[in-house]
């Protein structure tokens, strides 16, 4: 299946009586998720807040988030897909063998209880983190979880939401969708957007050595990418826009210092549930904003003889 059955965070705050976190550790990575948006908030239809809600945490290790959970399910590494598939079978009343389930590190009883709780919830939500989407199975795991959430709507109200990472990564998806039709990894070399993850995604491009120049902004791939990808960034002319010296700027030919987003640069950012929020900078930076610098580079390129697909 494709698609996603989701909502904004306020729906969870006002309605959710069953909250599942899967492969995420909000206590450490999204510290106010429990308190501002989900678990402990009193909501319109869950007036007693925490007392009205049940929280289940699924992860491969007992993180600090487990303390907040009513039920912690420790799944064996790389077995998330199996657990999700079993749950999808259980909610539909299909038969599942206890031996197969045992391989996941959980018992059939645990999963039956989990499935029943989901079906009986008035409003359930599955939050999933990188522990699900970036481990063995990757997007297949996400798809299985999204399918589970969609299928639960045959019984009750259920939604799913990814625990998006830092900064305005959500805004990047949103902006690329309206400007190019695709959420990331968009190749514009033919003058129109093309999308093929695995071919046009950055790590793959850099590992193959396809790029012969790079502009990096709002990220430090020199600290996060596989070494061969970083090596290629060091080989080619790399330009970095960043408020600070970073791992990437140390290997760059050009570094331009910019104002820090939200601290001294104004604009818009998107929350993980794709709600746009304005920034209110508290400081005045001596440096220009990223927006301003990219526009200046655009103008400098635009002054050169125009290039159109098929002419180079």
């Amino acid at each position: 299946m494709g698609g996603k059955v989701t909502c904004t965070l306020g729906e969870v705050k006002n309605r959710a009586d069953l909250i599942v976190y899967w492969g995420g550790n909000p206590a450490e990575c999204h510290p106010r998720h429990f308190t501002k948006y989900t678990l402990t908030q009193k909501g319109k239809f869950v007036p007693k807040g925490r007392k009205d809600r049940t929280m289940i945490l699924v992860d491969i290790r007992e993180t600090p988030s487990a303390k907040a959970a009513d039920i912690f399910l420790q799944v064996r590494p790389s077995k998330d897909f199996e657990v999700l598939t079993t749950l999808r079978a259980l909610i539909k009343g299909q038969r599942v063998s206890a031996e197969t389930v045992a391989e996941t590190g959980l018992t059939l009883e645990q999963l039956q209880d989990f499935a029943e709780r989901m079906k009986k919830a008035r409003f359930g939500v599955l939050f999933f983190g990188m522990g699900l989407s970036m481990t063995r199975g990757k997007h297949m795991n996400s798809a299985a979880l999204l399918s589970l959430a969609a299928e639960l709507n045959a019984f009750t109200k259920f939604v799913a939401m990814p625990m998006r990472g830092h900064g305005n990564v959500t805004g990047g998806d949103v902006v690329m969708r309206w400007t190019t039709g695709y959420p990331f990894g968009v190749n514009l070399s033919r003058g129109y957007p093309r999308f093929n993850p695995g071919e046009f995604s950055t790590v793959d491009l850099l590992l193959r050595g396809d790029n012969d120049a790079a502009l990096i902004l709002g990220a430090d791939p020199g600290a996060t990418m596989p070494q061969p990808a970083i090596d290629h960034l060091a080989r080619i002319p790399t330009i970095v826009l960043d408020p600070k010296v970073t791992h990437t700027s140390r290997l760059a030919r050009v570094h331009i210092t910019t104002a820090a987003t939200g601290i001294s640069a104004p604009g818009t950012v998107y929350r993980m549930d794709e709600i746009p929020l304005p920034l209110r900078p508290a400081l005045k930076s001596p440096y220009p904003t990223d927006e301003d610098v990219v526009r200046r580079i655009y103008k400098a390129v635009a002054k050169k003889p125009a290039w159109f697909p098929g002419t180079k």
Partner: peptide, 13 residues
């Protein structure tokens, strides 16, 4: 087929 759903708190979906 595919299904997308986005409920917007207190307002719409």
């Amino acid at each position: 087929r595919k299904w997308g759903n986005l409920d917007v708190e207190n307002e719409t979906g």
